[in-house]
Design a protein around this nucleic acid. Structure first.
Lengths: 197, 197
DNA sequence: GACAAGTAAACGATCGTTCGGTAAGTTTCC
DNA sequence: GGAAACTTACCGAACGATCGTTTACTTGTC
């Protein structure tokens, strides 16, 4: 459909602008100018700015669920978990539009949006890791391990922009695989310590 | 001084509003109304909105450096590190104004503010942990361990609001000390694994 | 001819900011 | 000691710009 393609163009550009500047700092005129159309025309496709933003979030946040790898045939749980975590981290570092919008919503105070955002953006990540973890460790330890794991991932993705500024040692370079390796190393130590009990 | 006390009143209230709604969503009229003064009067104390915001950040972010515990006499490095980490986490969970402003700046795109923010809010935390860590593990492992540790802390504080929404198991409750314990457990496993090499 | 996609122009509201003025305190100077 | 000069802290009113949005009208397409 022509219509939905045009709408998709709008959502794609809106995602970039909202990710870069935030909801309040992007005006309908900004969007119109960037799309080479009258701001009035945006109201032909969306009822108002809030709905445009909401649809943008739906559009962007749905990406993460599609990118989560399935376990390969007879893949060991530990190996699958590693693929999952490294896949999530790589996706978040790559898709800066997704990540910036996510962190903006994490800081937002709009309670209506929050619940929606949690289900759309966080839930798929959280549940997929939960499932993978539950094959690996005893059930009673899943939630706390999961929370730590998700915290590490979110924290690392959030902070990654700033580490190079913080390092006194300029030679130290961060890269995605090294991060994942470190997170996974921490996890496997944790798993091992659970086994010993 | 009367003047600086009035200015401090403004900064205190501005911090709350900016933390809650963000820079763009708070108008000078909002501030004026909440302070029961004319917005024009704000320009007697500050040159413009940007400077008011900047001073607010300085004011709020300087809190963290004051709250970092010093090592007690003859305190073991491991024990001091634990105090440090738990102190930082407790502070961040308690001072929601600080934390919200911090995460807003973490998502911001204003490069001028970013460098300033990194030095004021992140640097004290980062360096204090770095120093404590360097007493505990070999130098070459400090940076990577540090980054993971800071990521975990920042990630956990950021996500803590959402875990209760994500948990299928409603009975599971998160509390600050349990979190710290888990982060420290992960760290001591890591330290132990370094020792073994 | 009907319906989608687009425009120009304007609506009232709100934005950051400025201006001219006032009332109260502080300093200076005879 | 007291008038004059100056400073500080505020106000009401307005500035031009921009905001989200609406209205009435045109264009293109099936």
């Amino acid at each position: 459909m022509r219509a939905s393609s045009k709408k998709q163009d709008i959502l794609l550009l809106a995602a970039n602008l909202f990710a870069e500047r935030g909801f309040e700092a992007v005006s309908m005129r900004d969007l119109g100018k960037a799309l080479q159309m009258t701001p009035a025309n945006l109201y032909h496709h969306f009822t108002d700015k809030e709905q445009l933003y909401r649809e943008t979030l739906v559009d962007v946040f749905s990406r993460v669920a599609q990118v989560l790898p399935k376990p390969a045939k007879e893949e060991r749980p530990q190996s699958y978990l590693e693929h999952l975590v490294s896949g999530i981290i790589a996706f978040m570092l790559r898709d800066t539009v997704f990540t910036r919008l996510m962190f903006r919503e994490l800081s937002s105070d709009n309670h209506e949006r929050t619940a929606f955002f949690v289900e759309k953006a966080l839930r798929p990540v959280y549940d997929s890791i939960a499932k993978a973890l539950s094959l690996l460790i005893r059930k009673s330890a899943v939630t706390s391990t999961l929370d730590m794991l998700v915290s590490s991932i979110i924290g690392y993705v959030n902070m990654s922009r700033f580490f190079s500024l913080l390092h006194r040692d300029a030679s130290y370079e961060t890269d995605c695989e090294a991060i994942t390796a470190r997170i996974m190393a921490g996890l496997s130590l944790h798993v091992a310590s659970l086994d010993m009990k």
